[in-house]
Amino acid sequence: MKSWIAFWNILKKDVKNYYLKPPNISWGIIFPLSWTLMQLIRTPGGNILQLLPGLISMSVLFGTTSMLAVTITFERSGRSFDRLLLAPISLSTMVLAKIMGAILFGVFNAFVPVIFAAFFVNLGAVRWAVVLPAVLMIAVTSTLLGLLIAVSAKQVFEAQTFSNFFRFPMLFLCGLFVPLPSVPVFLRPLSYCLPLTYGTDLLNGAITATSSLSPVLCFSMLLAFAAALFMLCRYNINRKWIL
């Protein structure tokens, strides 16, 4: 019960102080929108449905990683983060509370391009039962990736540099722009090491029926990534932040 009160209030504070702040909200809407428009302009008459998985993935990836890197690194540099480390709640509870805000923010971002697309195309054929958990898992894994970066970075600036270093190569290797079978053979093992690859494949399957892996495999891989990243983050926080 006590842990739950702490969990809920950490989440509530983050949502109120960071995620619901006008600049972040508008960033969450404008960013996916401009990606969508850019893609439309680049390929006029292109099939919006085909673009949708990529847009969703990118929105989630950028939304979660950038927000988390900022909120955690920001509180670290102001030392208020020490309060969370000193609170009588387990490290897991604290980490879960901290990432939950970013996960929700990522899921919210994912649906901006979806709503936008709904004006242009019929989304009747989309398998939402797959899209929803896939979006959630992409949000979870990329948030944890963001946390891993935040744990390694000392300043907000450093966190952002790090995350760009990860994000852009990831976008090109995960099968979004270049379909997985066309990724150069020597880079393909790297693709299979990225959680986003599996998330994208799930979305491709659910939205345009063009998946190349089995959904069961994809979900299992995403869950495995989430668990491994969570443990890694916890271990790192314990090792690096409690000096």
Partner: peptide
């Protein structure tokens, strides 16, 4: 701590309540 490290963007009352919540 040696530095006053509460949350800048929150008011005094909310800061205190948040800290209370951390202790359940």
């Amino acid at each position: 701590p040696d530095e006053s490290n509460l949350y800048n963007e929150m008011d005094g009352f909310d800061n205190l309540c948040f800290c209370g919540a951390l202790y359940g």
